[in-house]
Write a protein that binds this DNA or RNA. Structure first.
Length: 548
RNA sequence: GGCCUGUUGGUGAAGGGGUUUAACACGCCACCCUCUCAAGGUGGUAUUCACGGGUUCGAAACCCGUACAGGCUACCA
Protein backbone atom coordinates (compact mmCIF):
# COMPACT_ATOMS: atom_id res chain seq x y z
CA UNK A 1 0.00 0.00 0.00
CA UNK A 2 1.37 3.35 -1.04
CA UNK A 3 0.13 5.26 2.03
CA UNK A 4 1.98 2.79 4.19
CA UNK A 5 5.12 3.57 2.25
CA UNK A 6 4.52 7.30 2.64
CA UNK A 7 4.04 6.91 6.37
CA UNK A 8 7.26 4.93 6.63
CA UNK A 9 9.23 7.43 4.62
CA UNK A 10 8.06 10.27 6.81
CA UNK A 11 8.41 8.39 10.08
CA UNK A 12 11.04 5.68 9.55
CA UNK A 13 11.84 5.51 13.25
CA UNK A 14 8.32 5.23 14.55
CA UNK A 15 7.62 1.61 15.32
CA UNK A 16 5.17 1.69 18.19
CA UNK A 17 1.44 1.96 17.73
CA UNK A 18 -1.25 3.99 19.40
CA UNK A 19 -2.38 0.86 21.19
CA UNK A 20 1.11 0.45 22.64
CA UNK A 21 0.93 3.87 24.21
CA UNK A 22 -2.58 3.41 25.44
CA UNK A 23 -1.39 0.29 27.18
CA UNK A 24 1.51 2.19 28.70
CA UNK A 25 -0.78 4.87 30.08
CA UNK A 26 -3.87 3.10 31.31
CA UNK A 27 -6.91 4.71 32.86
CA UNK A 28 -6.02 6.31 36.19
CA UNK A 29 -7.26 4.60 39.29
CA UNK A 30 -9.09 7.39 41.01
CA UNK A 31 -12.32 7.95 42.83
CA UNK A 32 -15.45 8.36 40.78
CA UNK A 33 -15.58 12.11 40.38
CA UNK A 34 -11.90 12.83 40.71
CA UNK A 35 -10.69 15.53 38.37
CA UNK A 36 -7.44 15.37 36.51
CA UNK A 37 -6.20 18.82 35.61
CA UNK A 38 -3.02 20.25 34.35
CA UNK A 39 -1.08 23.43 34.28
CA UNK A 40 0.50 23.60 30.87
CA UNK A 41 2.61 26.71 30.41
CA UNK A 42 5.01 27.49 27.64
CA UNK A 43 8.48 28.08 28.99
CA UNK A 44 8.81 31.67 27.85
CA UNK A 45 10.36 33.04 31.00
CA UNK A 46 7.53 34.88 32.64
CA UNK A 47 4.24 34.13 34.29
CA UNK A 48 1.17 36.06 33.32
CA UNK A 49 -1.82 36.52 35.56
CA UNK A 50 -3.76 35.06 32.65
CA UNK A 51 -1.86 31.80 33.21
CA UNK A 52 -2.01 31.97 36.94
CA UNK A 53 -5.78 32.18 37.17
CA UNK A 54 -6.49 28.94 35.29
CA UNK A 55 -3.68 27.31 37.25
CA UNK A 56 -5.43 28.22 40.50
CA UNK A 57 -8.65 26.74 39.21
CA UNK A 58 -6.88 23.58 38.08
CA UNK A 59 -5.38 23.22 41.50
CA UNK A 60 -8.70 23.73 43.30
CA UNK A 61 -10.51 21.32 41.02
CA UNK A 62 -8.01 18.56 41.61
CA UNK A 63 -7.71 19.08 45.35
CA UNK A 64 -11.43 19.24 45.92
CA UNK A 65 -12.05 15.98 44.15
CA UNK A 66 -9.02 14.01 45.32
CA UNK A 67 -7.82 14.14 41.79
CA UNK A 68 -4.51 14.90 40.14
CA UNK A 69 -2.98 18.23 39.24
CA UNK A 70 0.04 17.90 37.01
CA UNK A 71 2.51 20.20 35.35
CA UNK A 72 3.21 19.84 31.67
CA UNK A 73 5.90 21.79 29.94
CA UNK A 74 4.60 22.92 26.54
CA UNK A 75 7.82 23.63 24.76
CA UNK A 76 6.86 22.75 21.20
CA UNK A 77 7.77 26.22 20.02
CA UNK A 78 11.51 25.89 20.29
CA UNK A 79 12.10 29.44 19.15
CA UNK A 80 10.29 30.85 22.15
CA UNK A 81 11.75 28.53 24.74
CA UNK A 82 13.81 30.39 27.29
CA UNK A 83 16.54 29.02 29.52
CA UNK A 84 15.54 28.74 33.16
CA UNK A 85 11.88 29.28 32.43
CA UNK A 86 10.76 26.07 34.05
CA UNK A 87 12.66 26.85 37.24
CA UNK A 88 10.94 30.18 37.29
CA UNK A 89 7.52 28.59 36.90
CA UNK A 90 8.38 26.18 39.64
CA UNK A 91 9.42 29.00 41.95
CA UNK A 92 6.05 30.65 41.46
CA UNK A 93 4.12 27.44 42.05
CA UNK A 94 6.15 26.82 45.19
CA UNK A 95 5.70 30.36 46.45
CA UNK A 96 1.96 30.12 46.08
CA UNK A 97 1.77 26.59 47.37
CA UNK A 98 0.35 25.16 44.16
CA UNK A 99 2.39 21.99 44.22
CA UNK A 100 1.78 19.69 41.29
CA UNK A 101 1.27 15.98 41.92
CA UNK A 102 3.13 15.04 38.77
CA UNK A 103 5.92 16.96 37.13
CA UNK A 104 9.32 16.79 35.58
CA UNK A 105 12.04 19.22 36.53
CA UNK A 106 14.82 18.41 34.18
CA UNK A 107 17.52 20.61 35.67
CA UNK A 108 17.30 19.20 39.14
CA UNK A 109 16.49 15.79 37.74
CA UNK A 110 13.33 15.50 39.77
CA UNK A 111 10.36 13.74 38.35
CA UNK A 112 7.16 12.28 39.64
CA UNK A 113 4.22 10.57 38.01
CA UNK A 114 3.81 7.66 35.63
CA UNK A 115 2.18 9.45 32.73
CA UNK A 116 5.29 11.25 31.54
CA UNK A 117 7.39 12.51 30.02
CA UNK A 118 5.79 15.77 31.04
CA UNK A 119 7.91 17.76 28.66
CA UNK A 120 6.46 17.92 25.19
CA UNK A 121 9.73 18.04 23.34
CA UNK A 122 10.50 14.64 24.90
CA UNK A 123 7.26 13.22 23.58
CA UNK A 124 8.04 13.67 19.94
CA UNK A 125 7.92 9.99 19.14
CA UNK A 126 4.54 9.66 20.81
CA UNK A 127 3.03 12.43 18.72
CA UNK A 128 4.58 11.05 15.60
CA UNK A 129 3.06 7.68 16.28
CA UNK A 130 -0.36 9.26 16.21
CA UNK A 131 0.45 11.28 13.14
CA UNK A 132 1.87 8.28 11.36
CA UNK A 133 -1.38 6.49 11.99
CA UNK A 134 -3.26 9.36 10.40
CA UNK A 135 -1.01 9.40 7.35
CA UNK A 136 -1.37 5.67 6.93
CA UNK A 137 -5.13 6.04 7.09
CA UNK A 138 -5.11 8.90 4.63
CA UNK A 139 -6.44 11.28 7.23
CA UNK A 140 -3.40 13.51 7.17
CA UNK A 141 -1.02 14.44 4.40
CA UNK A 142 2.21 16.24 3.73
CA UNK A 143 1.70 19.76 2.48
CA UNK A 144 4.41 21.47 0.45
CA UNK A 145 2.96 24.95 0.44
CA UNK A 146 5.67 27.53 0.96
CA UNK A 147 5.30 30.55 3.16
CA UNK A 148 5.06 32.76 0.08
CA UNK A 149 2.33 30.64 -1.43
CA UNK A 150 0.37 30.74 1.78
CA UNK A 151 0.73 34.48 2.09
CA UNK A 152 -0.60 34.80 -1.43
CA UNK A 153 -3.57 32.58 -0.60
CA UNK A 154 -4.36 34.60 2.47
CA UNK A 155 -4.14 37.89 0.62
CA UNK A 156 -6.38 36.60 -2.11
CA UNK A 157 -8.92 35.40 0.40
CA UNK A 158 -8.89 38.70 2.21
CA UNK A 159 -9.38 40.55 -1.03
CA UNK A 160 -12.31 38.35 -2.07
CA UNK A 161 -13.75 38.54 1.45
CA UNK A 162 -13.56 34.86 1.89
CA UNK A 163 -12.67 32.96 5.00
CA UNK A 164 -8.97 32.76 5.63
CA UNK A 165 -7.29 29.40 5.76
CA UNK A 166 -6.21 26.27 3.97
CA UNK A 167 -9.45 24.49 3.17
CA UNK A 168 -11.35 23.17 0.18
CA UNK A 169 -9.72 24.17 -3.08
CA UNK A 170 -7.00 26.10 -1.24
CA UNK A 171 -5.72 22.84 0.18
CA UNK A 172 -3.59 22.25 -2.87
CA UNK A 173 -1.82 19.13 -1.65
CA UNK A 174 -4.60 17.30 0.10
CA UNK A 175 -5.30 15.19 -3.00
CA UNK A 176 -1.80 15.00 -4.35
CA UNK A 177 -1.17 11.44 -5.56
CA UNK A 178 0.79 9.60 -2.91
CA UNK A 179 3.63 8.69 -5.26
CA UNK A 180 4.16 12.36 -6.08
CA UNK A 181 4.29 13.20 -2.40
CA UNK A 182 6.85 10.44 -1.88
CA UNK A 183 8.91 11.81 -4.71
CA UNK A 184 8.87 15.35 -3.35
CA UNK A 185 9.91 14.14 0.07
CA UNK A 186 12.72 12.12 -1.45
CA UNK A 187 13.88 15.25 -3.23
CA UNK A 188 14.08 16.92 0.14
CA UNK A 189 11.26 19.42 -0.21
CA UNK A 190 10.06 20.93 3.05
CA UNK A 191 6.61 19.96 4.18
CA UNK A 192 4.24 20.17 7.05
CA UNK A 193 1.69 17.54 7.94
CA UNK A 194 -1.89 18.72 7.76
CA UNK A 195 -5.07 17.12 8.93
CA UNK A 196 -7.33 16.20 6.03
CA UNK A 197 -10.43 17.79 7.43
CA UNK A 198 -13.76 16.12 6.87
CA UNK A 199 -15.78 18.91 8.40
CA UNK A 200 -18.39 21.02 6.65
CA UNK A 201 -18.42 24.67 7.50
CA UNK A 202 -22.14 24.90 6.85
CA UNK A 203 -22.90 22.25 9.38
CA UNK A 204 -23.09 23.15 13.05
CA UNK A 205 -22.34 21.13 16.12
CA UNK A 206 -23.23 21.67 19.72
CA UNK A 207 -20.64 21.93 22.39
CA UNK A 208 -20.99 22.25 26.13
CA UNK A 209 -18.61 24.56 27.88
CA UNK A 210 -18.75 24.52 31.66
CA UNK A 211 -18.68 28.30 31.88
CA UNK A 212 -20.58 29.38 28.80
CA UNK A 213 -23.06 26.54 28.73
CA UNK A 214 -24.24 25.13 25.43
CA UNK A 215 -22.61 26.71 22.42
CA UNK A 216 -22.91 26.16 18.71
CA UNK A 217 -20.08 26.28 16.23
CA UNK A 218 -19.67 25.57 12.54
CA UNK A 219 -17.61 22.45 11.93
CA UNK A 220 -13.96 22.92 11.21
CA UNK A 221 -13.08 22.43 7.56
CA UNK A 222 -9.56 23.82 7.66
CA UNK A 223 -6.68 21.47 7.05
CA UNK A 224 -4.79 22.62 10.09
CA UNK A 225 -1.11 21.83 10.45
CA UNK A 226 -0.50 19.16 13.02
CA UNK A 227 3.24 18.77 12.60
CA UNK A 228 5.76 21.46 11.91
CA UNK A 229 8.27 21.21 9.10
CA UNK A 230 11.12 22.62 11.10
CA UNK A 231 11.55 19.99 13.78
CA UNK A 232 8.77 17.46 13.42
CA UNK A 233 7.15 18.64 16.65
CA UNK A 234 3.39 18.87 16.79
CA UNK A 235 1.38 22.06 16.92
CA UNK A 236 -0.44 22.98 20.10
CA UNK A 237 -3.71 21.51 18.92
CA UNK A 238 -2.28 18.13 18.20
CA UNK A 239 -0.23 17.98 21.38
CA UNK A 240 -3.37 18.87 23.32
CA UNK A 241 -5.18 15.94 21.76
CA UNK A 242 -2.46 13.38 22.36
CA UNK A 243 -1.34 14.51 25.81
CA UNK A 244 -4.73 15.06 27.34
CA UNK A 245 -5.87 11.74 25.96
CA UNK A 246 -2.87 9.77 27.22
CA UNK A 247 -2.61 11.62 30.51
CA UNK A 248 -6.34 11.23 31.05
CA UNK A 249 -7.07 14.86 31.71
CA UNK A 250 -10.69 15.30 32.67
CA UNK A 251 -10.92 19.10 32.75
CA UNK A 252 -9.14 21.61 30.60
CA UNK A 253 -9.11 25.10 32.06
CA UNK A 254 -7.94 27.81 29.70
CA UNK A 255 -8.64 31.37 28.66
CA UNK A 256 -11.53 32.39 26.46
CA UNK A 257 -9.16 33.16 23.63
CA UNK A 258 -9.11 29.41 23.04
CA UNK A 259 -12.79 29.10 22.46
CA UNK A 260 -12.45 29.66 18.76
CA UNK A 261 -10.20 26.61 18.57
CA UNK A 262 -12.95 24.36 19.83
CA UNK A 263 -14.04 23.27 16.34
CA UNK A 264 -10.49 22.16 15.60
CA UNK A 265 -10.21 20.22 18.83
CA UNK A 266 -13.63 18.74 18.32
CA UNK A 267 -12.62 17.38 14.95
CA UNK A 268 -9.30 16.08 16.22
CA UNK A 269 -10.88 14.11 19.04
CA UNK A 270 -13.58 12.84 16.71
CA UNK A 271 -11.03 11.67 14.18
CA UNK A 272 -9.45 9.37 16.73
CA UNK A 273 -12.67 8.56 18.50
CA UNK A 274 -11.25 9.82 21.78
CA UNK A 275 -13.37 11.21 24.55
CA UNK A 276 -13.03 14.97 24.85
CA UNK A 277 -12.20 16.41 28.23
CA UNK A 278 -14.55 18.94 29.74
CA UNK A 279 -13.66 22.51 28.98
CA UNK A 280 -13.72 25.49 31.26
CA UNK A 281 -13.10 28.56 29.17
CA UNK A 282 -12.53 31.30 31.66
CA UNK A 283 -13.02 35.01 31.08
CA UNK A 284 -10.12 37.12 29.99
CA UNK A 285 -8.56 39.56 32.38
CA UNK A 286 -8.98 42.95 30.85
CA UNK A 287 -7.29 46.27 31.31
CA UNK A 288 -8.77 49.68 30.89
CA UNK A 289 -6.94 51.55 28.20
CA UNK A 290 -8.29 55.06 27.86
CA UNK A 291 -11.94 54.75 26.99
CA UNK A 292 -11.92 51.14 25.96
CA UNK A 293 -10.71 47.87 27.43
CA UNK A 294 -8.41 45.21 26.05
CA UNK A 295 -6.83 41.98 27.08
CA UNK A 296 -4.26 42.63 29.80
CA UNK A 297 -0.77 42.63 28.33
CA UNK A 298 2.55 41.68 29.79
CA UNK A 299 4.21 44.32 27.68
CA UNK A 300 1.93 47.22 28.54
CA UNK A 301 0.70 46.39 32.02
CA UNK A 302 3.14 45.65 34.82
CA UNK A 303 0.42 44.04 36.92
CA UNK A 304 -0.02 41.38 34.24
CA UNK A 305 3.18 39.73 35.38
CA UNK A 306 3.28 37.76 38.58
CA UNK A 307 6.62 39.36 39.43
CA UNK A 308 4.77 42.63 40.01
CA UNK A 309 3.10 41.20 43.10
CA UNK A 310 6.31 39.72 44.35
CA UNK A 311 8.24 42.96 43.93
CA UNK A 312 5.60 44.95 45.74
CA UNK A 313 5.54 42.35 48.46
CA UNK A 314 1.94 41.28 48.52
CA UNK A 315 1.58 38.16 50.65
CA UNK A 316 1.03 35.32 48.21
CA UNK A 317 -2.13 34.26 49.98
CA UNK A 318 -3.56 37.75 49.54
CA UNK A 319 -2.99 37.54 45.80
CA UNK A 320 -4.72 34.19 45.75
CA UNK A 321 -7.64 35.58 47.72
CA UNK A 322 -8.01 38.47 45.29
CA UNK A 323 -7.96 36.22 42.26
CA UNK A 324 -10.40 33.81 43.87
CA UNK A 325 -12.90 36.64 44.24
CA UNK A 326 -12.70 37.19 40.51
CA UNK A 327 -13.01 33.51 39.81
CA UNK A 328 -16.20 33.12 41.83
CA UNK A 329 -17.80 36.22 43.28
CA UNK A 330 -19.36 34.26 46.12
CA UNK A 331 -15.86 33.44 47.34
CA UNK A 332 -15.71 36.52 49.55
CA UNK A 333 -18.90 35.66 51.38
CA UNK A 334 -17.64 32.13 51.85
CA UNK A 335 -14.35 33.41 53.23
CA UNK A 336 -16.11 35.51 55.84
CA UNK A 337 -17.63 32.39 57.29
CA UNK A 338 -14.45 30.32 56.94
CA UNK A 339 -11.67 32.58 58.12
CA UNK A 340 -9.14 29.84 58.69
CA UNK A 341 -10.04 27.47 55.90
CA UNK A 342 -7.66 26.79 53.05
CA UNK A 343 -8.89 28.27 49.78
CA UNK A 344 -9.15 24.86 48.17
CA UNK A 345 -11.97 24.04 50.57
CA UNK A 346 -14.10 26.54 48.73
CA UNK A 347 -16.19 24.78 46.17
CA UNK A 348 -15.38 26.29 42.82
CA UNK A 349 -18.26 26.41 40.40
CA UNK A 350 -17.64 27.11 36.72
CA UNK A 351 -21.31 27.94 36.31
CA UNK A 352 -20.93 30.84 38.70
CA UNK A 353 -18.13 32.26 36.66
CA UNK A 354 -18.93 35.28 34.61
CA UNK A 355 -18.43 34.62 30.92
CA UNK A 356 -17.47 38.18 30.11
CA UNK A 357 -14.02 39.58 30.73
CA UNK A 358 -13.17 41.23 34.02
CA UNK A 359 -10.94 44.09 34.99
CA UNK A 360 -8.52 43.19 37.73
CA UNK A 361 -9.12 45.74 40.45
CA UNK A 362 -5.89 46.64 42.20
CA UNK A 363 -7.82 48.62 44.84
CA UNK A 364 -9.61 45.47 45.76
CA UNK A 365 -6.33 43.58 45.97
CA UNK A 366 -4.99 46.28 48.30
CA UNK A 367 -7.99 45.96 50.52
CA UNK A 368 -7.77 42.20 50.65
CA UNK A 369 -4.06 42.30 51.29
CA UNK A 370 -4.42 44.89 54.04
CA UNK A 371 -7.03 42.81 55.77
CA UNK A 372 -4.96 39.71 55.33
CA UNK A 373 -1.86 41.25 56.87
CA UNK A 374 -3.91 42.66 59.74
CA UNK A 375 -4.96 39.14 60.65
CA UNK A 376 -1.39 37.81 60.77
CA UNK A 377 0.62 37.33 63.93
CA UNK A 378 3.50 39.70 64.57
CA UNK A 379 5.94 36.89 63.88
CA UNK A 380 4.37 36.26 60.50
CA UNK A 381 4.54 39.90 59.55
CA UNK A 382 8.15 39.97 60.59
CA UNK A 383 8.96 36.89 58.54
CA UNK A 384 7.16 38.39 55.57
CA UNK A 385 9.01 41.71 55.67
CA UNK A 386 12.29 39.97 56.29
CA UNK A 387 11.88 37.63 53.35
CA UNK A 388 10.92 40.49 51.09
CA UNK A 389 13.77 42.69 52.31
CA UNK A 390 16.37 39.99 51.84
CA UNK A 391 15.48 40.04 48.21
CA UNK A 392 14.88 43.70 47.58
CA UNK A 393 16.42 45.73 50.43
CA UNK A 394 19.41 44.04 52.01
CA UNK A 395 20.18 46.99 54.24
CA UNK A 396 16.75 46.92 55.83
CA UNK A 397 16.97 43.16 56.14
CA UNK A 398 20.13 43.51 58.20
CA UNK A 399 18.43 45.98 60.50
CA UNK A 400 15.44 43.72 60.85
CA UNK A 401 17.63 40.82 61.84
CA UNK A 402 19.47 42.96 64.33
CA UNK A 403 16.28 44.21 65.98
CA UNK A 404 14.01 41.24 65.71
CA UNK A 405 11.94 41.59 68.88
CA UNK A 406 11.94 45.34 68.62
CA UNK A 407 10.56 45.14 65.06
CA UNK A 408 7.93 42.63 66.05
CA UNK A 409 6.84 44.96 68.84
CA UNK A 410 6.32 47.65 66.22
CA UNK A 411 4.20 45.34 64.09
CA UNK A 412 2.24 44.39 67.15
CA UNK A 413 0.92 47.88 67.86
CA UNK A 414 -2.84 47.50 68.13
CA UNK A 415 -2.64 44.12 66.46
CA UNK A 416 -3.81 41.72 69.13
CA UNK A 417 -7.36 42.98 69.33
CA UNK A 418 -10.66 42.15 67.67
CA UNK A 419 -10.31 44.86 65.07
CA UNK A 420 -6.60 45.18 64.45
CA UNK A 421 -4.94 48.10 62.76
CA UNK A 422 -4.66 47.92 59.01
CA UNK A 423 -1.51 49.83 58.34
CA UNK A 424 0.27 47.65 55.85
CA UNK A 425 -0.89 46.75 52.39
CA UNK A 426 2.29 45.06 51.19
CA UNK A 427 5.71 44.36 52.58
CA UNK A 428 7.56 46.89 50.47
CA UNK A 429 5.86 49.79 52.21
CA UNK A 430 6.58 48.73 55.74
CA UNK A 431 9.98 50.39 55.84
CA UNK A 432 8.48 53.70 54.76
CA UNK A 433 5.95 53.41 57.58
CA UNK A 434 8.33 52.41 60.36
CA UNK A 435 11.73 53.88 59.47
CA UNK A 436 11.68 56.43 62.29
CA UNK A 437 11.70 53.67 64.87
CA UNK A 438 15.28 52.80 63.96
CA UNK A 439 18.12 55.10 65.00
CA UNK A 440 19.99 54.05 61.88
CA UNK A 441 17.42 55.90 59.79
CA UNK A 442 16.72 58.63 62.34
CA UNK A 443 19.58 60.82 61.19
CA UNK A 444 19.90 64.35 59.82
CA UNK A 445 16.47 65.18 61.07
CA UNK A 446 14.54 68.37 60.41
CA UNK A 447 11.50 69.25 62.44
CA UNK A 448 8.48 71.22 61.43
CA UNK A 449 6.28 72.58 64.18
CA UNK A 450 4.11 74.73 61.95
CA UNK A 451 3.05 77.97 63.58
CA UNK A 452 4.74 77.23 66.88
CA UNK A 453 8.15 78.57 67.73
CA UNK A 454 10.81 75.95 68.19
CA UNK A 455 11.93 77.59 71.47
CA UNK A 456 8.45 77.29 72.95
CA UNK A 457 8.20 73.71 71.86
CA UNK A 458 11.54 72.94 73.40
CA UNK A 459 10.41 74.35 76.67
CA UNK A 460 7.23 72.35 76.67
CA UNK A 461 9.07 69.16 75.88
CA UNK A 462 11.67 69.79 78.51
CA UNK A 463 8.96 70.30 81.09
CA UNK A 464 7.30 67.14 79.93
CA UNK A 465 10.46 65.15 80.13
CA UNK A 466 11.48 66.47 83.54
CA UNK A 467 8.17 66.56 85.35
CA UNK A 468 5.82 64.14 83.67
CA UNK A 469 7.45 61.37 81.68
CA UNK A 470 7.72 58.01 83.42
CA UNK A 471 8.42 54.98 81.34
CA UNK A 472 6.48 52.66 83.61
CA UNK A 473 3.21 54.61 83.37
CA UNK A 474 0.32 52.76 81.84
CA UNK A 475 -1.55 54.34 78.99
CA UNK A 476 -4.19 55.94 81.19
CA UNK A 477 -1.71 57.52 83.54
CA UNK A 478 0.38 58.61 80.62
CA UNK A 479 -2.56 60.36 79.03
CA UNK A 480 -3.78 62.04 82.18
CA UNK A 481 -0.30 63.42 82.72
CA UNK A 482 -0.34 64.91 79.28
CA UNK A 483 -3.62 66.51 80.12
CA UNK A 484 -2.15 67.93 83.29
CA UNK A 485 0.71 69.37 81.30
CA UNK A 486 -1.74 70.95 78.89
CA UNK A 487 -3.75 72.57 81.62
CA UNK A 488 -0.65 73.92 83.29
CA UNK A 489 0.66 75.47 80.10
CA UNK A 490 -2.65 76.89 78.88
CA UNK A 491 -3.47 74.31 76.23
CA UNK A 492 -7.02 72.97 75.92
CA UNK A 493 -7.67 69.36 76.82
CA UNK A 494 -11.28 69.44 75.74
CA UNK A 495 -11.42 69.63 71.97
CA UNK A 496 -15.02 70.81 71.86
CA UNK A 497 -14.26 73.70 74.21
CA UNK A 498 -11.17 74.52 72.19
CA UNK A 499 -13.01 74.55 68.90
CA UNK A 500 -15.67 76.81 70.35
CA UNK A 501 -13.17 79.36 71.69
CA UNK A 502 -9.70 78.81 70.32
CA UNK A 503 -8.62 82.32 71.32
CA UNK A 504 -8.80 81.32 75.01
CA UNK A 505 -5.93 78.89 74.63
CA UNK A 506 -2.38 78.75 73.38
CA UNK A 507 -3.35 75.64 71.53
CA UNK A 508 -4.89 72.27 72.17
CA UNK A 509 -3.88 68.86 73.36
CA UNK A 510 -3.50 67.90 69.73
CA UNK A 511 -0.68 70.41 69.46
CA UNK A 512 1.04 69.13 72.56
CA UNK A 513 0.87 65.48 71.60
CA UNK A 514 2.08 66.40 68.19
CA UNK A 515 5.09 68.19 69.66
CA UNK A 516 6.06 64.95 71.28
CA UNK A 517 5.20 62.99 68.19
CA UNK A 518 7.29 65.20 65.97
CA UNK A 519 10.20 65.23 68.36
CA UNK A 520 10.22 61.45 68.39
CA UNK A 521 9.33 60.69 64.81
CA UNK A 522 9.30 63.97 62.85
CA UNK A 523 5.79 63.03 61.74
CA UNK A 524 2.33 64.22 62.70
CA UNK A 525 0.69 60.93 61.83
CA UNK A 526 1.82 57.75 63.50
CA UNK A 527 0.17 54.90 65.31
CA UNK A 528 -0.65 55.33 68.97
CA UNK A 529 1.94 57.62 70.55
CA UNK A 530 1.94 55.79 73.85
CA UNK A 531 2.87 52.53 72.14
CA UNK A 532 5.55 54.25 70.13
CA UNK A 533 7.10 55.68 73.26
CA UNK A 534 6.95 52.36 75.06
CA UNK A 535 8.67 50.60 72.21
CA UNK A 536 11.28 53.30 71.72
CA UNK A 537 12.05 53.06 75.42
CA UNK A 538 13.29 55.65 77.84
CA UNK A 539 16.76 55.97 76.39
CA UNK A 540 15.70 56.68 72.86
CA UNK A 541 12.95 59.03 73.99
CA UNK A 542 15.42 61.03 76.01
CA UNK A 543 17.99 61.08 73.27
CA UNK A 544 15.49 62.24 70.71
CA UNK A 545 14.08 64.99 72.89
CA UNK A 546 17.60 66.15 73.67
CA UNK A 547 18.53 65.97 70.06
CA UNK A 548 15.85 68.51 69.36
C1' G B 1 -14.09 40.34 5.73
C1' G B 2 -15.47 35.62 8.46
C1' C B 3 -16.50 32.93 13.04
C1' C B 4 -17.47 33.19 18.30
C1' U B 5 -18.71 35.73 22.74
C1' G B 6 -20.32 39.48 25.68
C1' U B 7 -22.91 44.36 27.32
C1' U B 8 -26.32 45.52 35.20
C1' G B 9 -22.77 51.66 39.03
C1' G B 10 -16.04 54.14 39.20
C1' U B 11 -14.59 48.28 39.96
C1' G B 12 -15.87 42.90 40.86
C1' A B 13 -20.76 41.50 40.66
C1' A B 14 -26.03 39.25 42.72
C1' G B 15 -30.42 38.66 40.43
C1' G B 16 -32.86 34.11 34.95
C1' G B 17 -40.80 37.20 34.42
C1' G B 18 -44.14 40.16 40.04
C1' U B 19 -41.16 39.78 47.55
C1' U B 20 -35.89 44.90 43.40
C1' U B 21 -37.50 51.18 46.59
C1' A B 22 -31.42 46.43 41.79
C1' A B 23 -27.97 42.35 47.21
C1' C B 24 -22.97 42.18 48.81
C1' A B 25 -17.78 43.70 48.61
C1' C B 26 -14.08 47.41 46.97
C1' G B 27 -13.54 52.58 45.76
C1' C B 28 -15.27 57.54 46.40
C1' C B 29 -17.94 61.50 49.38
C1' A B 30 -20.03 63.33 54.01
C1' C B 31 -20.66 63.09 59.08
C1' C B 32 -19.66 60.73 64.02
C1' C B 33 -15.91 58.79 67.36
C1' U B 34 -10.95 60.47 68.46
C1' C B 35 -4.19 62.90 71.14
C1' U B 36 -2.55 62.41 65.14
C1' C B 37 -3.11 58.31 61.92
C1' A B 38 -5.08 53.46 61.01
C1' A B 39 -9.35 51.18 62.43
C1' G B 40 -14.48 51.47 63.71
C1' G B 41 -19.64 53.55 63.26
C1' U B 42 -23.63 55.98 60.34
C1' G B 43 -25.34 57.69 55.83
C1' G B 44 -24.79 58.96 50.50
C1' U B 45 -23.17 57.15 45.85
C1' A B 46 -27.46 52.86 38.96
C1' U B 47 -35.13 56.89 39.46
C1' U B 48 -32.57 51.96 36.58
C1' C B 49 -29.95 47.18 34.05
C1' A B 50 -26.23 49.47 25.93
C1' C B 51 -30.23 51.12 22.43
C1' G B 52 -34.83 50.18 19.48
C1' G B 53 -38.90 47.09 18.90
C1' G B 54 -41.85 42.89 20.45
C1' U B 55 -44.17 39.01 23.93
C1' U B 56 -46.87 39.82 28.67
C1' C B 57 -51.69 42.33 33.18
C1' G B 58 -46.34 42.90 34.44
C1' A B 59 -39.35 42.56 31.74
C1' A B 60 -32.96 44.01 34.15
C1' A B 61 -34.77 39.14 33.35
C1' C B 62 -37.97 35.95 27.38
C1' C B 63 -37.69 36.97 21.66
C1' C B 64 -35.90 39.87 17.37
C1' G B 65 -32.97 43.68 15.42
C1' U B 66 -29.17 47.55 16.00
C1' A B 67 -24.98 49.59 18.21
C1' C B 68 -20.69 49.00 20.87
C1' A B 69 -16.84 46.09 22.99
C1' G B 70 -13.66 41.88 23.19
C1' G B 71 -11.46 37.26 21.38
C1' C B 72 -9.85 34.19 17.35
C1' U B 73 -8.83 34.15 12.16
C1' A B 74 0.17 31.52 12.39
C1' C B 75 4.14 25.55 10.66
C1' C B 76 2.54 30.77 18.69
C1' A B 77 0.70 28.80 22.56
Amino acid sequence: MQREELANIIFPEVTKTIADYEAMYPERKLEENARVTRFAPSPTGFMHIGHFMPCLIDFCLARQSKGVFYLRNEDTDTSRTVEGAVEYIRSILDAYGLYPDEYEYRDSNETKGSYGPYIQSERKEIYQTFIKHLVREGKAYPCFLTKEEMDAIREGQAKDKRRIGIYGRYAKYRDLPVEEAIEKIKKGEAYTIRLKSTGDFNRKFKFNDLVNGEMEFPENDIDIPIMKSKDGLPTYHFAHLVDDHLMHTTHVVRGQEWISSVPVHFELFKTFGFKMPKYIHIPLILKKDGESVRKISKRLDPEAKMTYYEEKGYPTMAVIEAIMTIINSNYEAWREGHLDAHFTEFEFSPKKMSSSGALFDLDKLDNISKNYISRLKKEEVYEGVLAWSKKYDQEFATILEQYKDYSMAIYNIEREQKKPRKDYTYYSEIKSKTWYMYDEYFQDITYDFGEFKKEDVKEILTTYWKDYYKEEDDQETWFSKIKELCTKLGFATDMKAYKANPENYKGSIVDVTNFIRIALTTLTTTPNLYDIMQILGKERVEKRIENL
